[in-house]
Simulated assay, not measured.
Amino acid sequence: PYLLDHVNVPIYAPPFASELIKKKLKRSRINQKLDLIPITVGDQKKIGEFFVEWFSVCHSIPDSTGLLIDTPKGKIIHTGDFKIDHNPILGNPSNLAELADISSPEVLLLMADSTNADDEGYSGSDREVFTSLLHLISNAKGRVFISSFASHIARIQMVFLIAKLCNRKVAFSGRSMIDNAKISQELGHLSIPDGVKITLPQALSLPKDQVIIITTGSQGEPTSSLVKMASKTHKEIKIKKGDTIIISASI
């Protein structure tokens, strides 16, 4: 957010990103007027000498898009971060036909960003992660703590679906996790079964085999909830014998 103090430019963003930006600026107490322009998939805008079109890409973050930029010298495609998943938990599957269509005629420059793209083989589908998580949670005897990226809404959705199957309640720990889940639910990206979501104090009062706590800290961030639990500095949660800790992210 601090870049806005030095660069006064419009920001084009889809709904989920727009709400994250607003929340970040509010928490950072930055009062500069924001020229935030909402966009959706299929929108076309003339920006200077460029014509820009937004297209959908598959990702764990809602509303993820790539850019088709038509310049006087030729086409540029900026994919944004994406993955190929034909059966995702959240959002639409990868549309390879659309990617082929927008790349014709010839593209001058492709700027592609996909985690581990230089590794051989194929990325696993989120459905495979679902199966693994279901096995771990259904066999856990005590509380289950799941740490993931706060922006990984597909993983959060997955946990709620599994919690329903395993007759467990779900609570959040970590400000960004709480904020992102709330925004996702308001925008219709996150569907929470009735009666499954509870507050953290409620979770701490339930029998241990009825609780899942989704927490921040999958990357070892010093101020995250999971790190505070591990260092015994969390104000509400103490890790105890019988708890299962799942880090559901790349390390």
Score class of each variant (00 low, 15 high):
residue 197 K to V: 03
residue 117 A to D: 06
residue 48 G to I: 14
residue 61 I to M: 14
residue 75 K to R: 15
residue 19 E to I: 05
residue 106 E to Y: 05
residue 187 L to G: 04
residue 222 P to G: 09
residue 237 I to Y: 05
residue 106 E to T: 11
residue 13 A to V: 03
residue 52 V to H: 04
residue 211 V to R: 03
residue 82 F to K: 01
residue 6 H to S: 07
residue 152 H to Y: 15
residue 182 K to G: 00
residue 66 G to W: 01
residue 21 I to S: 11
residue 113 D to K: 10
residue 75 K to H: 07
residue 47 I to D: 04
residue 186 E to P: 02
residue 2 Y to V: 09
residue 192 I to F: 05
residue 25 L to E: 08
residue 82 F to S: 03
residue 94 S to G: 09
residue 110 L to I: 14
residue 119 D to K: 07
residue 34 L to E: 02
residue 124 G to K: 13
residue 180 N to H: 11
residue 106 E to D: 12
residue 68 L to M: 13
residue 202 Q to N: 08
residue 191 S to M: 13
residue 215 T to Y: 02
residue 89 I to V: 15
residue 240 K to Y: 01
residue 171 A to E: 05
residue 158 M to W: 02
residue 118 D to S: 06
residue 167 N to D: 13
residue 35 D to T: 08
residue 185 Q to A: 13
residue 171 A to T: 10
residue 167 N to A: 12
residue 14 P to S: 11
residue 202 Q to V: 07
residue 173 S to G: 13
residue 23 K to G: 00
residue 121 G to C: 08
residue 185 Q to C: 08
residue 220 G to W: 12
residue 153 I to W: 00
residue 113 D to R: 11
residue 24 K to G: 03
residue 77 I to H: 03
residue 66 G to K: 01
residue 35 D to S: 13
residue 133 L to Q: 04
residue 120 E to I: 12
residue 185 Q to M: 11
residue 165 L to F: 07
residue 217 G to F: 07
residue 89 I to R: 03
residue 127 R to E: 06
residue 63 D to F: 05
residue 10 P to K: 12
residue 194 D to E: 14
residue 62 P to S: 06
residue 12 Y to F: 15
residue 147 S to D: 04
residue 8 N to I: 13
residue 114 S to V: 09
residue 123 S to D: 06
residue 98 E to P: 00
residue 30 I to L: 15
residue 96 L to T: 10
residue 7 V to M: 14
residue 116 N to Q: 13
residue 138 S to G: 03
residue 140 A to G: 11
residue 178 I to C: 11
residue 40 T to Y: 09
residue 134 L to Q: 07
residue 131 T to S: 08
residue 205 S to Q: 13
residue 116 N to I: 10
residue 55 F to I: 06
residue 69 I to L: 09
residue 175 R to D: 06
residue 151 S to M: 13
residue 45 K to Q: 12
residue 147 S to A: 15
residue 74 G to C: 13
residue 6 H to D: 09
residue 14 P to Q: 08
residue 133 L to V: 03
residue 242 G to P: 05
residue 240 K to E: 10
residue 246 I to F: 02
residue 13 A to L: 02
residue 148 S to G: 01
residue 195 G to M: 12
residue 87 N to T: 12
residue 44 Q to V: 15
residue 155 R to S: 09
residue 212 I to S: 00
residue 69 I to R: 08
residue 217 G to H: 01
residue 90 L to Y: 06
residue 59 H to T: 00
residue 145 F to H: 02
residue 166 C to L: 04
residue 75 K to I: 09
residue 228 K to S: 03
residue 245 I to G: 05
residue 185 Q to G: 00
residue 87 N to C: 08
residue 174 G to K: 04
residue 195 G to W: 07
residue 125 S to M: 11
residue 140 A to Y: 01
residue 241 K to F: 05
residue 246 I to Q: 02
residue 235 K to R: 14
residue 174 G to E: 03
residue 149 F to Q: 11
residue 71 T to V: 03
residue 100 A to Q: 14
residue 89 I to S: 07
residue 172 F to N: 01
residue 213 I to H: 00
residue 234 H to L: 08
residue 126 D to P: 00
residue 234 H to R: 08
residue 132 S to K: 04
residue 111 M to H: 13
residue 115 T to Q: 14
residue 19 E to P: 02
residue 219 Q to K: 14
residue 246 I to G: 01
residue 150 A to N: 04
residue 142 G to K: 06
residue 203 A to D: 02
residue 121 G to L: 09
residue 5 D to T: 09
residue 241 K to Y: 02
residue 207 P to E: 07
